[in-house]
Design a protein around this nucleic acid. Structure first.
Lengths: 119, 119
DNA sequence: TGATTATATTACTATATGGTTGTAAAACGA
DNA sequence: TCGTTTTACAACCATATAGTAATATAATCA
């Protein structure tokens, strides 16, 4: 069954509280190490130890970032003995990254065009 | 003419430098006042003074946030006398906000389901 | 039980940044 | 020219947070 996601398309009003909530979500993605963790989880679920190896940062640091991503609902986790596997909770996060990447590209193009007008 | 946006769909690899760039973009959106400014620009371009009135914060603060949004390519500006009009540079930013809002909703639903299993 | 492994947590430091205050710059009007 | 209006900028402070070091917790194994 295909679940149709009802998108709000800016139907509702944007209160200050809404701004706080949305900003909090964006903040979770506004950190290079967390983006690298999410990217490492792209192909499959991974243990904390794997993520430490893949990112090259400390175990405490990985754990801390994962807690934040978990609390924000970006990743899920599953326990197996002492090992804990983390996985992407919603691939929506990669749609957002793609949009950002597109934005970076477009911004570059626009700047280039401004420096080098007509031609 | 319709411009087809070529989306990278995760084709390229995600280096540390890429993570820094993407995080920087997200960081620009990870701030409630900047989100309120962008939202105020949604219907039309507005002067700095208008934005001060709409947000209720200081002129210096509005200006500072607008500089950051401008440098990141989220808004454009146009001068008319001493007045400067800012406008949304790419409505992509609202697509991202919509994705975040959907994420918040889904996360809420998921948490509710976890608290209230089967039923 | 005691040792080991895997993850989380706590306390701390250094840095980044949001908001304020005061001032500068630029365009306009009298 | 002088004053006014509009926006930008610089210096400052308070707070938030990324990373580290040390420790706690919990599960497994010998």
């Amino acid at each position: 069954m295909v679940v149709k996601r009802k998108s709000r398309q800016s139907g509702v009003q944007f209160t200050e509280d809404t701004a706080d909530l949305v900003a909090e979500r964006f903040r979770a993605l506004a950190e290079p190490m967390r983006l690298r963790l999410l990217n490492a989880l792209r192909p499959r679920a991974r243990s904390v130890g794997e993520l430490v190896g893949l990112t090259g940062t400390s175990q405490a640091n990985v754990s801390k970032h994962l807690q934040l991503l978990y609390k924000q609902g970006f990743v899920d986790r599953e326990k197996d003995g002492t090992t804990i596997y983390y996985r992407i909770a919603d691939p929506m996060v990669f749609e957002m990254c793609d949009l950002v990447c597109d934005g970076i590209q477009q911004d570059l193009d626009a700047r280039r065009a401004r420096l080098n007008p007509e031609r």
